[in-house]
Amino acid sequence: MEGFLSTYGSAIVQMALAGVLALSLYLPLMAGQLSLASPGFYAVGGYVAALLSTRVFTGFPNGSYPILLIALEMVVAGGVSALFALIIGIPSLRLRGVYLALATIAFVEVLRVFALNQPWLGGAVGIYNIPQPFFSATRVEYLLLALPLLLVSTLFVARLERSRIGRAFVALREDELAASAMGIRPTYYKVLAFTIGAVLAGMTGALNAHILNTWNPRQGTFDLAILILAYVLVGGSRTFLGPVIGGAFLVALPEIILREVADAPGLHPAIATFLRDGRLILFGVLIAVSVFFFPYGLVTPNLFKRRRKTNVPRLEAAKAAPKVSRG
């Protein structure tokens, strides 16, 4: 166990963070909006934390940076991301389906190129030597911050799903016209979902800036956006547990599971080599295959429900596929 933690410490922390990022994309999706802006807010959050900890809260020797300050940075990063989300969200959430996805990707790309060209953000090198609160190479101590973030955001989304707001999101996803006829303001709730998602992504970025020790324009890119989308859809986009489990699983798959399998005793050396070098090939293939075998994701809302005898036909299974309004 000790060896496992020291080998895979940072992968385990990244599993938790992937869950939060997946939730940040899941929230707009819950309201029927396919937004790929999460990496943008993630990058903004990371830069906020990197700037604050290297320029403002200086003077702490390495390894003794206060955890409370990291928490404060996360709050600030969340606030800045929310501000960005409002500015971007209000005009662009008029768009639908693929158009919204592309507009949010445009935001991510413009942000990346902007960061690449700003000397005060470190340009292509980025901001490095971000202070560490722990003395360790494996970074497993960061679980002390990553797990609470994951738990709090999961609980928050779980409660949100059952609240008036969450039901308004779902109503918008199912039928925007009917929902607005029932007095649900589409723009208000869409921007709300988008902004809450942005706050989660920004906080994750802030934490990850400390974990990675450096933050540069390669952190929030298009690749990450589609990876997060894969977290959500592989995990399941109909309940808050889906994104959390999908994120953890897809991070663990190439970094832990396939590595462990490759090290299994008695494996033919050629297979072991392929498993090690071709990890990402298998990763891609498994994503494609999992979508075929689990079209509703690994976790569906009625996975944990006891079968009840009702005379109402069960519509949930038929409707469990993610649905995004497109026009």
Partner: peptide
């Protein structure tokens, strides 16, 4: 998503 997986592969 499945086309994304194939692209990665």
């Amino acid at each position: 998503v499945s086309s994304l997986g194939v692209a990665v592969a």
